[in-house]
Every structure is written in C-alpha cells, then in structure tokens.
C-alpha cells in the first residue's frame, strides 16, 4: 500500500507531471512536490509525487555498497573463514 515507484518527470503542465509508468504515459499530481522540475526523478504514490529523488544520494549509496562489502570481504579473507553461502546465494539471486 505504501509502495511508491521512481519515475522521471518528462514535462510539467499546470501542476501535473507527465511520466511514463509501466509502459504507459500518464499524468501525476505534483501538489506535494512543487519543487519538482522536468527531468527529475520522483517517487509516485497513488497518483501523486511524494518525494523528489536525490540523484547524488543514489550514487552515494551505490558507492557505499562497495565500501561496506569490501570491508567485510577483507575481514573474511584475513579470517580464512568461508562466507556463509550455500543455498543462500540461489535464493537471493533467484529474486
């Protein structure tokens, strides 16, 4: 119910943003995000943009993934411990 999906605002007309969403072009209300500009990515929930996504933060998180997992891997290598794997991989990657 609280799901919101990221979409790109292509154009803005009269407080409504034109977006493409699941292969369909539709209008969403920008009443809750008046700061949104054409080209921004927004989170859409029940026909309204609820948040303008921060592209810088999005990159930052991806960088963080590397950092976090690199530290753990270095530790593991030092420990010479196997990384709890087995069936785990299949299930997670099956997603």
């Amino acid at each position: 119910m609280c799901l919101a999906v990221p979409v790109r605002v292509e154009a803005i007309n009269n407080g409504m943003g034109m977006v493409e969403f699941g292969g369909v072009r539709r209008e969403v209300s920008l009443a809750l995000t008046p700061e949104a500009r054409a080209g921004d990515y927004v989170l859409i929930h029940t026909g309204y943009a609820i948040s303008v996504l921060d592209a810088g933060e999005a990159e930052e998180t991806l960088r963080l993934f590397d950092e976090l997992t690199a530290a753990a891997e270095a530790e593991e290598a030092a420990d010479q411990r196997p990384a709890g794997e087995g069936s785990t991989d299949n299930k997670v990657s099956a997603a």
């Binding site: 991806l62 976090l68 991989d89």
Partner: peptide, 24 residues
C-alpha cells in the same frame, strides 16, 4: 532511477549477506 540495477544486483546482495553474517 537510472541506476536501479545496482540496487537489484544479486552479486552485491550476496556480498551484503556475507557481510551481515560476519558482523552478527
């Protein structure tokens, strides 16, 4: 966003799971 793949990458997921296991 454009880089959604990274958030869904199974290889990153595998490494995050391993990191969680070695932390807890």
């Amino acid at each position: 966003m454009t880089q959604l793949e990274g958030y869904r990458d199974p290889e990153i997921a595998r490494r995050l799971v391993a990191a969680i296991r070695s932390t807890v």
